[in-house]
Simulated scan of single mutants.
Amino acid sequence: MKVQDLLNQTDKLPNVPDVVRELIQLFNDPNANYSDIASRVVYDQTISLKVLRMVNSAYFGLSRKISSIDEAVVLLGMEKLKTLVIASGFANSVSKVDGLKLNDFWMDSFRVAELAQWFAKRTPLVSEDEAFTAGIVHNIGRLLLHLAQPSLAIEIQTLVANRKMGRVKAERDLLGFTSQEAGKALMDLWKFPPQLGLAVQEHKHPFGDGSDEPQALACVLNLACYINACIAHERDSDLVREGFPGAVGKAAGLPESIIYELDDALIIEGAFDQLLG
């Protein structure tokens, strides 16, 4: 099987709204007019309602109720609104997937996104917005696999759950490629910025074969996934620091002292869960 076999099933691809794709494609345009995009958000009722619900949640702690996207832009700024729109757009891109609990999948993706953003704030090499989006889409290849080849996806999941095989080996043996490679192919199909697709493909092993300089965004994503796994397994903070991949942190542009800030990362909760459902 080839990755293209998944992409050819156009009816199975996640249905990400145009306004979300436009926001992501505008990452590389310093002259982008985000106010035009904001005006388009208004016409997507599903996203607008979910974003406004999130804006009015305790997470933002605003002093009064916000009733329009225009007000949200004024009070939150375009960057925060962009984050909410992207999160909402992806969370509602599919309604049902065989073998995958969607709420758990997106809650996990949101937390990785927030952790990636947390690390990005501490390095000059990665933008916060890009890190957040990379976190949301880091596992999109697995979602694609479950949509296009549910039987194979469930077989791989069973092998991994029973500890018969690691996920990367199981995917290569049964598919001939990894879900990270499938994710990059989907990013390319959607014409997202190339660095996003590269980060999705390389984040599991950012140093690759050691021949190339690791991509900083892939490194940040790798660290976010590491901390997310530590949270999921309730790992003691001393063990988290002990196991922290320092070489990856250095390649991400983070200071060595970052290990003393990890306690703050370990208490990050999924603030975007309200966008689900």
Rank of each mutant, 00 (worst) to 15 (best):
L198D: 13
A170P: 02
S211R: 15
N139Q: 11
Q117C: 10
A116K: 03
R172N: 11
L174V: 02
L174A: 07
L174I: 09
Q195Y: 12
A113T: 08
A134P: 00
K184T: 05
A113N: 01
A182T: 07
S151M: 09
G135D: 07
R142M: 13
K191L: 13
A148R: 08
F177R: 05
R163S: 05
A199L: 02
L175D: 03
A120L: 02
P193G: 11
D212L: 14
W118Y: 15
A131M: 08
R111S: 00
T158I: 11
A131N: 05
K164R: 12
A170Y: 00
F110R: 00
P206F: 02
A153Y: 01
P194E: 14
E130D: 15
F105I: 05
T133S: 09
A120D: 02
R122N: 15
L125Y: 12
I156H: 04
G99D: 12
P193L: 07
A134W: 06
F207H: 11
K164C: 13
R122P: 04
R142A: 10
T123Y: 10
K184G: 01
F192D: 09
Q201W: 04
M165P: 03
F105E: 10
E181F: 02
I140W: 00
D212Y: 12
G176A: 01
T123K: 09
F110I: 01
L159F: 05
R163G: 02
D104Y: 13
R111K: 15
E130C: 07
T178N: 06
T123W: 00
L186C: 03
A199N: 08
L144H: 10
G99H: 03
I154V: 13
A113W: 08
F207P: 06
E128R: 08
L159V: 03
V200L: 08
T133H: 08
G166T: 08
H203I: 06
V168N: 05
D108G: 11
D173P: 01
S109W: 05
M107G: 08
A148M: 04
G135P: 09
H146I: 09
D98Y: 12
A153E: 00
A116D: 02
T158G: 02
R172V: 09
P206A: 06
K184F: 06
D129Q: 14
D212W: 06
K169R: 12
K184P: 03
F177S: 05
F119K: 00
A116S: 14
G166A: 04
D108Q: 14
H146S: 15
L198H: 15
R163T: 09
Q157F: 09
G141F: 02
V112C: 05
P206I: 03
V160R: 05
Q117A: 14
F119T: 01
G99E: 04
P124T: 09
L147E: 01
L147P: 00
L102K: 07
E130A: 14
I156M: 01
P194M: 11
Q195N: 15
D212F: 14
P124C: 14
H203D: 02
A134R: 02
G141N: 04
G208D: 05
V137R: 00
T158F: 02
L143C: 08
L196S: 00
L102N: 06
Q117F: 12
H146E: 03
